[in-house]
Nucleic acid binder design. Structure first.
Length: 863
RNA sequence: GGACACUUAGUUCAGCGGGAGAACGCUUCCUUCACACGGAAGAGGUCACAGGUUCGAUCCCUGUAGUGUCCACCA
């Protein structure tokens, strides 16, 4: 017997371990069609947040739903080593523990990092379990596993041999805190307060000078020339002349190039080829030296004279002061401009000339773009994210993939000690002693990009690979379309010649109550575990997956989780009722239509419609819409109406009637449990196991199916009428200040008795005594007349004005509806152009409104 | 500078070419045997603004304003 109140913690107890130990999460039933999802591997850097909870719950719903629909579902779990992020955290911890990190070796560091990984992986496992995720742990992967490393090396060598990976000296984004190169998308552009400094560049052997502006004066030590537009009249006289760099006295040529825009700034631009991507192009074009002026930690190097060793910002300040003293500072303008910050360390990134490994993007991007024009295309849900993806693909530049870190996949390149030649190979050369191994590791996203097939053992063509790849569906947030989704697509196309998945389901971000991003600095983060402790995991899951439209952000609102828990309590109690009316020895049978009362037929109709609507939206990954249909069925149709009315037939002496009612109740309940199950597996399992006949677990059940047109539609109208009469009587009581439980005499015309027990239902629901008569008590609106002889009405109605006002309001509404409807029907264009069913619908509406109006007029007359 | 999204009840959000919906909050009433984490009834919205398409627009199109996000090398 169920407790009176749904207690999530009791319900959740033990279920996950039981599912897991019985192997329900393990894929491999070859009799079924496969359905594959790979989890977006969380970083082993910390706790999972609400965003993970959302993301994984969506996947769990899909996995459980598809399994119930009869698929062999593989939901493959795993974690990401998260190069920079993890290395930074581990280093931080080591420093905290007093370890001198400048002295430790790569090997020592890695052993610490692996320990860290084990600890956090354990943590993540616990959270997954708490969330109830149906993950196939037998196939769990880690991005640094040795077989994944083999995939990574294979891909690297393949791309290298195809000429799609190259080593080159280019301007990259340098993170001076982590001391590694970054890719373009790891740089976040923020509005920062800064200044534009205007300096005099004196012309050699002349009293004249040019004014050159810069936001980064410290880079002047790397200047090689000043550039002006050849057509710029004001600078024509300086063509071929030279100027003096006010920072260090270097003589710089004046170069003419139409890259410089006339009228922008001063029209004269300083050129620092080693520290600016545009200047780099110009420097290359004219064959200038490219002096690098920073050390790796962004202090000034030996090229900066007396400023050597200073931090870049200290240098800037001192340099500007020094130039000012010489009288060569024209002005300083405060500005707000976009400055690149490192995604991980948040420090200001320094563009720097550096030798790194790159992926040549154009051919890979083109292949991805081409794919989207074919039938094999990746289907984005919602579709607009395909544009986001394509746009990025069309414009992306070469991808810097080398990182000066230890934690990651080491690049499989070897430098010959004698010749310096580079050997790129999956396995180390046999004469390894003659080589120096590349110390750089790969960008984390390089290995993440192989996730859908590397986790299935590619390049080995295993049974799993053959069966589960390409995967079916990928769920992730729109914030990592560029980082991850796009890279999986082009990596997969290159490696396997297939797209990695059929569908990509994109969701938004979880925000706080005020719509702000959750962040550590704001301290507004919500720990999913706290929410689970408070309301239970099912309530959290239900909240997360039913409160936003696909692709849209969502606010976390505590009250909504609470209301989700209340909904589950409602289902719980409806189950409690149904179970309480089932006799000891009871056999579940298929329903026989001929035994069904009109009410039974009505609820079965509603149920069929609900299953259809829910299934349809589940297939579209629209879990909000799907849950809405179920919610309405549970509250309005099942609990408020059928369940209450079942009490009538259950109290009758007719055994068949009773039996049938129980069968119907049970069918509804079971369907509800099965439909809520993917959202809230714990409570669903608990209720399911309390059903009179059940399998070992709800995880072995099949999703409910619907049959079209099980029963004719006529009964629906009769039942609607019954509800309307009940509503009328309730309203009558309220309007007349009669207590809701006061027994009112209600007189009905005999012909209204639409089916057996009609009056009993009515009586029970309206707390009234129902009598029938053949006299003309029928008002013009229809079939009902409350026995409101004038005395009763007036005596009980304490506020006639209020009642009249209300009725007049209703009257006005009906009149306006009638007018609207008539106007439509009298419009020849509408009648000739609108679809037939719409016209018929409108006729029906007009009729209804006319009847309503009559009824209201009658009531008004009596006041 | 580009791209995308959003603007609907007090709040948070759904929705839709043909009578504006939910949750929470609010008002009134009810402990009646599944549930007071409940029930019944109700108040509350020129669906941002302006044009256009259409027999008909909250919905489709164009533009405007506001908000937000992403992308972009402009000294």
């Amino acid at each position: 017997m169920l407790e009176k109140r749904y207690d999530p913690h009791i319900v959740e107890e033990g279920k996950y371990d039981s599912w897991k130990s019985k192997g329900y999460f393990t894929a491999g039933d070859k009799s079924k069609e496969p359905f594959t999802i790979v989890i977006p591997p969380p970083n082993v850097t910390g706790k999972l947040h609400l965003g993970h909870a959302w993301d994984t719950t969506i996947q769990d719903i899909i996995a459980r739903y598809k399994k119930a629909k009869g698929y062999d579902v593989l939901w493959l779990p795993g974690m990401d080593h998260a190069g920079i992020a993890t290395q930074a955290k581990v280093m931080g911890k080591l420093v905290e523990n007093g370890v001198d990190v400048t002295k430790i070796s790569r090997e020592e560091f890695l052993s610490y990092a692996w320990k860290w990984k084990d600890e956090y992986a354990d943590n993540i496992h616990k959270q997954w379990a708490r969330m109830g995720l149906a993950l196939d742990y037998t196939r769990e992967r880690f991005t640094l596993d040795s077989d994944l490393n083999y995939s990574v090396r294979t891909i690297f060598v393949d791309l290298y041999n195809k000429g799609l990976i190259y080593q080159g000296e280019r301007i990259i984004n340098w993170d001076p805190v982590q001391q590694t190169a970054l890719s373009n998308i790891e740089v976040i552009h923020q509005d920062d307060e800064g200044a534009m400094y205007y300096f005099k560049y004196h012309v050699v052997d002349s009293n004249e000078y040019l004014i050159v502006a810069t936001t980064r004066p410290e880079t002047m030590f790397g200047d090689v020339c000043v550039v002006v537009n050849p057509k710029d009249e004001q600078y024509k006289k300086y063509h071929g002349k030279k100027v003096i760099n006010p920072a260090n006295g270097d003589i710089l040529p004046i170069i003419e190039d139409d890259y410089v825009e006339i009228g922008f700034g001063t029209g004269a631009m300083k050129c620092t080829p080693a520290h600016d991507p545009n200047d780099f192009i110009i420097g290359k074009k004219y064959g200038f030296d490219m002096p690098i002026i920073f050390n790796k930690n962004a202090t000034m190097n030996e090229k900066c004279g007396k400023y050597q060793g200073l931090d870049r910002y200290d240098c800037r300040e001192q340099l500007v002061n020094d130039i000012k003293e010489k009288g060569d500072l024209v002005k300083i303008e405060k500005i707000v401009h976009q400055v690149g910050h490192s995604q991980r360390s948040n420090c200001v990134v320094e563009p720097m000339l550096s030798k790194q490994w790159f992926v040549k993007m154009k051919p890979l991007a083109d292949a991805s773009i081409k794919l989207q024009k074919t039938k094999e295309k990746v289907n984005f849900e919602p579709a607009r994210f395909e544009h986001t993806f394509l746009q990025w693909m069309e414009n992306c530049e070469d991808w810097c993939i080398s990182r000066q870190l230890w934690w990651g996949h080491q690049i499989p390149a070897y430098y010959n000690k004698k010749t310096g030649e580079v050997l790129v190979s999956v396995n180390p050369p046999k004469d390894i002693e003659n080589y120096i191994e590349e110390s750089d590791v790969l960008d984390t996203w390089f290995s993440s990009g192989l996730w859908p097939f590397a986790t299935l053992h590619w390049p080995e063509i295993t049974d799993d690979y053959k069966r589960y790849f390409p995967t079916t569906c990928l769920v992730t947030g729109y914030d990592i379309i560029f980082f991850w989704v796009s890279r999986m697509i082009f990596q997969s196309l290159n490696a396997t010649a297939k797209p990695p998945f059929k569908d990509v389901v994109i969701h938004g971000l979880v925000r706080d109550e005020l719509g702000r991003k959750m962040s550590k600095s704001l301290g507004n983060g919500v720990d999913p575990i706290d929410v689970i402790d408070k309301y239970g995991v099912d309530a959290l899951r239900y909240f997360l997956t039913t409160n936003s439209t696909p692709g849209q952000d969502m606010r976390f609102i505590d009250e909504k989780v609470e209301s989700s828990a209340n909904y589950l309590n409602k289902i719980w109690n409806s189950a409690r009722y149904v179970l309480s009316v089932i006799p000891e020895e009871f056999k579940e049978n298929d329903l026989e239509v001929k035994n069904l009362s009109p009410l039974d037929q009505w609820i079965i109709n509603k149920l069929e419609k609900t299953i259809k609507d829910v299934t349809c939206n589940m297939e579209k990954y629209d879990f909000n819409a799907a849950s809405g249909h179920l919610y309405n069925f549970v509250y309005d149709d099942f609990c408020s109406n059928y369940l209450e009315m079942s009490k009538v037939s259950l109290s009758s002496d007719n055994a068949l009637k009773k039996e049938t009612t129980i069968q119907v109740l049970l069918k509804c309940l079971k369907s509800i449990i099965l439909m809520i199950y993917p959202y809230t597996p714990f409570i669903a399992e608990e209720l399911y196991l309390n059903l009179p006949s059940h399998k070992e677990s709800i995880m072995l059940e099949r999703y409910p199916t619907y049959e079209k047109e099980l029963i004719n539609n006529k009964v629906n109208k009769e039942i609607e009428l019954l509800f309307n009469i009940i509503k009328d009587i309730r309203n009558y009581k309220i309007e007349n200040k009669i207590a809701p439980n006061a027994r009112l005499d209600v007189l009905l015309n005999s012909k209204i008795k639409l089916f057996d027990d009609f009056d009993i239902y009515l009586s029970r629901f309206s707390f009234s005594n129902i009598r029938y008569t053949n006299e003309s008590v029928v008002n013009q609106s229809g079939e009902l007349k409350v026995y409101d002889d004038a005395d009763v009405l007036i005596v009980n109605n304490t506020n006639k004005d209020e009642l009249l006002a209300k009725l007049n309001k209703e009257k006005a509404f009906e009149q306006s509806e009638i007018e609207r409807s008539s106007r439509m029907l009298n419009n020849p264009n509408f009648v000739s152009k609108a679809p037939k069913d719409k016209i018929e619908l409108e006729r029906q509406k007009l009729l209804t409104h006319q009847q309503n109006l009559q009824s209201i007029l009658e009531k008004i007359k009596k006041i």
